[in-house]
Amino acid sequence: MTEIVMECKNLWKIYKDIVAVRDVSLQIREGEIKLIFGPSGSGKSTLLRCLAMLTTPTKGDVFLRGECLTKPGVDLNKARARIGFVFQHIYLFHHLTALGNVELALRHVLKLPKDEARKRAMSALEEVKMEKWANYYPAQLSGGQQQRVGIARALARNPDIILLDEPTSALDPELTGEVIDTLRDLAKKGTTMLIVSHEMPFAQEVADEMIFFDEGTIVETGTPEHFFTNPSTERAKKFMMRLIKRTRRE
Protein backbone atom coordinates (compact mmCIF):
# COMPACT_ATOMS: atom_id res chain seq x y z
CA MET A 1 0.00 0.00 0.00
CA THR A 2 1.21 3.52 -0.75
CA GLU A 3 1.75 6.10 1.95
CA ILE A 4 -1.15 7.94 3.52
CA VAL A 5 -0.85 11.61 2.56
CA MET A 6 -3.72 13.10 4.47
CA GLU A 7 -5.90 11.71 7.16
CA CYS A 8 -8.47 12.91 9.64
CA LYS A 9 -9.75 11.05 12.67
CA ASN A 10 -13.08 11.73 14.36
CA LEU A 11 -13.20 15.29 13.09
CA TRP A 12 -15.91 17.65 14.35
CA LYS A 13 -16.66 21.26 13.58
CA ILE A 14 -19.35 22.89 15.68
CA TYR A 15 -20.48 26.52 15.27
CA LYS A 16 -22.49 27.72 18.30
CA ASP A 17 -25.45 25.39 17.79
CA ILE A 18 -24.82 24.07 14.30
CA VAL A 19 -22.84 20.89 13.80
CA ALA A 20 -21.17 21.40 10.41
CA VAL A 21 -18.88 18.36 10.49
CA ARG A 22 -19.85 15.33 12.56
CA ASP A 23 -17.28 12.72 13.50
CA VAL A 24 -15.59 12.33 10.11
CA SER A 25 -12.63 10.02 9.53
CA LEU A 26 -10.98 9.54 6.14
CA GLN A 27 -7.64 8.81 4.48
CA ILE A 28 -6.13 9.78 1.16
CA ARG A 29 -3.14 7.85 -0.09
CA GLU A 30 -0.39 8.93 -2.46
CA GLY A 31 -1.75 9.35 -5.98
CA GLU A 32 -5.32 8.71 -4.94
CA ILE A 33 -8.28 10.78 -6.07
CA LYS A 34 -11.27 10.91 -3.79
CA LEU A 35 -14.41 12.74 -4.60
CA ILE A 36 -16.86 14.07 -2.03
CA PHE A 37 -20.41 14.78 -3.10
CA GLY A 38 -23.69 15.50 -1.36
CA PRO A 39 -26.43 18.09 -0.90
CA SER A 40 -25.47 21.76 -0.55
CA GLY A 41 -25.11 22.92 3.02
CA SER A 42 -24.09 19.46 4.15
CA GLY A 43 -20.70 20.66 5.42
CA LYS A 44 -18.43 19.59 2.55
CA SER A 45 -16.69 22.96 2.30
CA THR A 46 -16.24 23.15 6.05
CA LEU A 47 -14.67 19.70 6.05
CA LEU A 48 -12.21 20.73 3.35
CA ARG A 49 -11.34 23.94 5.18
CA CYS A 50 -10.73 21.97 8.36
CA LEU A 51 -8.41 19.58 6.51
CA ALA A 52 -6.44 22.56 5.14
CA MET A 53 -6.47 24.09 8.64
CA LEU A 54 -8.14 27.21 7.29
CA THR A 55 -10.69 26.74 10.05
CA THR A 56 -9.79 25.08 13.30
CA PRO A 57 -11.68 21.84 13.91
CA THR A 58 -13.59 21.72 17.20
CA LYS A 59 -12.58 18.15 17.97
CA GLY A 60 -10.56 15.42 16.32
CA ASP A 61 -7.24 15.34 14.50
CA VAL A 62 -5.86 16.09 11.03
CA PHE A 63 -2.63 14.46 9.87
CA LEU A 64 -0.42 15.38 6.92
CA ARG A 65 2.02 12.60 6.12
CA GLY A 66 1.66 11.36 9.66
CA GLU A 67 2.27 14.73 11.27
CA CYS A 68 -0.57 15.89 13.50
CA LEU A 69 -1.69 19.42 12.55
CA THR A 70 -4.29 19.79 15.28
CA LYS A 71 -2.05 19.66 18.31
CA PRO A 72 -0.94 22.98 19.81
CA GLY A 73 2.37 24.48 18.70
CA VAL A 74 2.27 23.25 15.09
CA ASP A 75 3.51 25.79 12.53
CA LEU A 76 0.34 26.02 10.49
CA ASN A 77 1.90 28.25 7.84
CA LYS A 78 4.42 25.53 7.09
CA ALA A 79 1.70 22.90 6.98
CA ARG A 80 -0.52 24.99 4.69
CA ALA A 81 2.43 25.53 2.37
CA ARG A 82 2.28 21.79 1.63
CA ILE A 83 -1.46 21.73 0.92
CA GLY A 84 -2.95 23.12 -2.28
CA PHE A 85 -6.43 24.61 -2.03
CA VAL A 86 -8.76 25.55 -4.86
CA PHE A 87 -11.78 27.62 -3.91
CA GLN A 88 -15.27 27.49 -5.34
CA HIS A 89 -15.25 31.25 -5.80
CA ILE A 90 -11.61 31.19 -6.90
CA TYR A 91 -10.35 34.17 -4.83
CA LEU A 92 -7.50 35.20 -7.08
CA PHE A 93 -5.59 38.22 -5.83
CA HIS A 94 -7.15 41.07 -7.79
CA HIS A 95 -4.08 43.30 -7.83
CA LEU A 96 -1.74 40.69 -9.32
CA THR A 97 -1.56 39.27 -12.82
CA ALA A 98 -2.09 35.55 -13.43
CA LEU A 99 1.67 35.13 -13.17
CA GLY A 100 1.83 37.28 -10.04
CA ASN A 101 -0.85 35.14 -8.40
CA VAL A 102 1.09 31.95 -9.05
CA GLU A 103 4.46 33.50 -8.20
CA LEU A 104 3.51 35.01 -4.84
CA ALA A 105 3.88 31.88 -2.72
CA LEU A 106 6.95 30.73 -4.63
CA ARG A 107 8.66 34.00 -3.76
CA HIS A 108 7.44 34.54 -0.23
CA VAL A 109 6.67 31.07 1.10
CA LEU A 110 9.23 28.87 -0.65
CA LYS A 111 11.53 31.93 -0.86
CA LEU A 112 12.81 31.03 -4.32
CA PRO A 113 14.97 33.55 -6.18
CA LYS A 114 13.08 35.74 -8.64
CA ASP A 115 14.07 33.95 -11.85
CA GLU A 116 13.39 30.52 -10.53
CA ALA A 117 10.03 31.56 -9.09
CA ARG A 118 9.09 33.03 -12.46
CA LYS A 119 10.15 29.89 -14.30
CA ARG A 120 8.19 27.63 -12.01
CA ALA A 121 5.15 29.89 -12.11
CA MET A 122 5.24 29.86 -15.91
CA SER A 123 5.47 26.10 -16.02
CA ALA A 124 2.49 25.85 -13.62
CA LEU A 125 0.57 28.15 -15.96
CA GLU A 126 1.59 25.94 -18.88
CA GLU A 127 0.20 22.94 -17.05
CA VAL A 128 -3.22 24.58 -17.00
CA LYS A 129 -2.69 26.00 -20.51
CA MET A 130 -2.77 29.59 -19.32
CA GLU A 131 0.75 30.67 -20.23
CA LYS A 132 -0.55 33.03 -22.91
CA TRP A 133 -2.55 34.87 -20.28
CA ALA A 134 0.30 35.25 -17.79
CA ASN A 135 0.21 39.05 -17.83
CA TYR A 136 -3.55 39.47 -17.59
CA TYR A 137 -5.29 40.54 -14.41
CA PRO A 138 -8.03 38.33 -12.95
CA ALA A 139 -10.78 40.76 -13.94
CA GLN A 140 -9.66 40.47 -17.56
CA LEU A 141 -10.10 36.69 -17.61
CA SER A 142 -13.20 34.52 -17.93
CA GLY A 143 -14.37 32.47 -14.95
CA GLY A 144 -12.94 29.27 -16.37
CA GLN A 145 -9.59 30.91 -17.06
CA GLN A 146 -9.55 32.37 -13.56
CA GLN A 147 -10.16 28.96 -12.05
CA ARG A 148 -7.35 27.46 -14.11
CA VAL A 149 -5.05 30.14 -12.70
CA GLY A 150 -6.44 29.22 -9.27
CA ILE A 151 -5.42 25.62 -9.91
CA ALA A 152 -1.96 26.70 -11.12
CA ARG A 153 -1.57 28.80 -7.99
CA ALA A 154 -2.43 25.78 -5.84
CA LEU A 155 -0.11 23.33 -7.59
CA ALA A 156 2.95 25.54 -8.26
CA ARG A 157 4.43 24.77 -4.85
CA ASN A 158 4.23 21.03 -5.56
CA PRO A 159 1.97 20.42 -2.58
CA ASP A 160 1.52 16.95 -1.10
CA ILE A 161 -2.17 17.09 -1.89
CA ILE A 162 -4.63 19.41 -3.57
CA LEU A 163 -8.04 20.03 -2.02
CA LEU A 164 -10.62 21.35 -4.46
CA ASP A 165 -13.85 22.84 -3.19
CA GLU A 166 -16.43 22.63 -6.00
CA PRO A 167 -14.01 24.07 -8.56
CA THR A 168 -16.62 24.27 -11.31
CA SER A 169 -19.88 25.04 -9.58
CA ALA A 170 -19.54 28.83 -9.64
CA LEU A 171 -18.85 28.82 -13.40
CA ASP A 172 -21.21 29.12 -16.33
CA PRO A 173 -21.97 25.65 -17.69
CA GLU A 174 -20.05 26.29 -20.92
CA LEU A 175 -16.91 27.10 -18.93
CA THR A 176 -16.81 24.02 -16.73
CA GLY A 177 -15.36 21.86 -19.51
CA GLU A 178 -11.98 23.58 -19.66
CA VAL A 179 -11.56 23.30 -15.88
CA ILE A 180 -12.56 19.64 -15.92
CA ASP A 181 -10.02 19.03 -18.70
CA THR A 182 -7.34 20.61 -16.53
CA LEU A 183 -8.28 18.39 -13.59
CA ARG A 184 -8.27 15.35 -15.85
CA ASP A 185 -4.68 16.21 -16.85
CA LEU A 186 -3.69 16.46 -13.20
CA ALA A 187 -5.32 13.10 -12.53
CA LYS A 188 -3.31 11.51 -15.32
CA LYS A 189 -0.10 12.83 -13.75
CA GLY A 190 -0.97 11.06 -10.52
CA THR A 191 -1.73 14.17 -8.44
CA THR A 192 -3.20 13.33 -5.04
CA MET A 193 -6.55 15.10 -4.84
CA LEU A 194 -9.61 15.41 -2.67
CA ILE A 195 -12.33 17.02 -4.74
CA VAL A 196 -15.77 18.20 -3.80
CA SER A 197 -17.73 18.01 -7.03
CA HIS A 198 -20.97 16.99 -8.66
CA GLU A 199 -19.51 16.52 -12.14
CA MET A 200 -20.57 12.90 -12.43
CA PRO A 201 -19.04 11.80 -15.73
CA PHE A 202 -15.75 13.26 -14.51
CA ALA A 203 -16.10 11.44 -11.17
CA GLN A 204 -16.76 8.17 -12.92
CA GLU A 205 -13.66 8.63 -14.99
CA VAL A 206 -11.07 9.68 -12.42
CA ALA A 207 -12.22 8.94 -8.87
CA ASP A 208 -10.72 6.01 -6.99
CA GLU A 209 -13.37 6.43 -4.36
CA MET A 210 -16.50 8.47 -3.97
CA ILE A 211 -17.74 9.70 -0.63
CA PHE A 212 -21.40 10.56 -0.17
CA PHE A 213 -21.65 13.29 2.43
CA ASP A 214 -24.83 14.48 4.13
CA GLU A 215 -25.66 16.37 7.33
CA GLY A 216 -22.01 16.82 8.22
CA THR A 217 -20.94 13.23 7.94
CA ILE A 218 -19.94 10.40 5.61
CA VAL A 219 -23.02 8.40 4.75
CA GLU A 220 -21.56 5.96 2.28
CA THR A 221 -18.30 5.34 0.42
CA GLY A 222 -17.56 3.23 -2.62
CA THR A 223 -16.22 3.13 -6.13
CA PRO A 224 -17.93 5.20 -8.83
CA GLU A 225 -19.19 1.89 -10.20
CA HIS A 226 -20.86 1.13 -6.88
CA PHE A 227 -22.64 4.48 -6.77
CA PHE A 228 -23.73 4.41 -10.39
CA THR A 229 -25.13 0.92 -10.20
CA ASN A 230 -26.25 0.16 -6.72
CA PRO A 231 -25.79 2.59 -3.81
CA SER A 232 -26.76 0.89 -0.56
CA THR A 233 -28.32 3.77 1.39
CA GLU A 234 -31.65 5.25 0.48
CA ARG A 235 -30.29 8.80 0.74
CA ALA A 236 -27.43 8.13 -1.67
CA LYS A 237 -29.79 6.42 -4.08
CA LYS A 238 -32.13 9.41 -4.18
CA PHE A 239 -29.26 11.88 -4.56
CA MET A 240 -27.65 9.87 -7.38
CA MET A 241 -30.98 9.72 -9.22
CA ARG A 242 -31.27 13.48 -9.09
CA LEU A 243 -27.68 14.02 -10.23
CA ILE A 244 -27.98 11.61 -13.13
CA LYS A 245 -31.21 13.24 -14.27
CA ARG A 246 -29.57 16.66 -14.13
CA THR A 247 -26.52 15.48 -16.03
CA ARG A 248 -28.74 14.02 -18.78
CA ARG A 249 -30.59 17.31 -19.10
CA GLU A 250 -27.29 19.10 -19.64
Partner: peptide, 25 residues
Protein backbone atom coordinates in the same frame (compact mmCIF):
# COMPACT_ATOMS: atom_id res chain seq x y z
CA UNK B 1 -11.77 37.92 4.32
CA UNK B 2 -11.67 35.78 1.19
CA UNK B 3 -8.42 37.33 0.04
CA UNK B 4 -6.92 36.69 3.45
CA UNK B 5 -8.07 33.07 3.38
CA UNK B 6 -6.64 32.54 -0.11
CA UNK B 7 -3.32 33.99 1.08
CA UNK B 8 -3.24 31.78 4.17
CA UNK B 9 -4.09 28.73 2.06
CA UNK B 10 -0.78 29.21 0.23
CA UNK B 11 1.20 29.08 3.45
CA UNK B 12 1.73 32.84 3.81
CA UNK B 13 1.79 34.10 7.39
CA UNK B 14 -0.86 36.60 8.41
CA UNK B 15 1.69 39.43 8.41
CA UNK B 16 2.92 38.55 4.92
CA UNK B 17 -0.68 38.24 3.75
CA UNK B 18 -1.39 41.75 5.05
CA UNK B 19 1.76 43.08 3.43
CA UNK B 20 1.52 41.39 0.03
CA UNK B 21 -2.21 40.90 -0.46
CA UNK B 22 -4.36 43.10 1.76
CA UNK B 23 -2.51 46.44 1.91
CA UNK B 24 -1.59 46.72 -1.78
CA UNK B 25 -5.29 46.52 -2.57
Amino acid sequence: EDQMMAALSLGLSKIKAIFYVILPQ
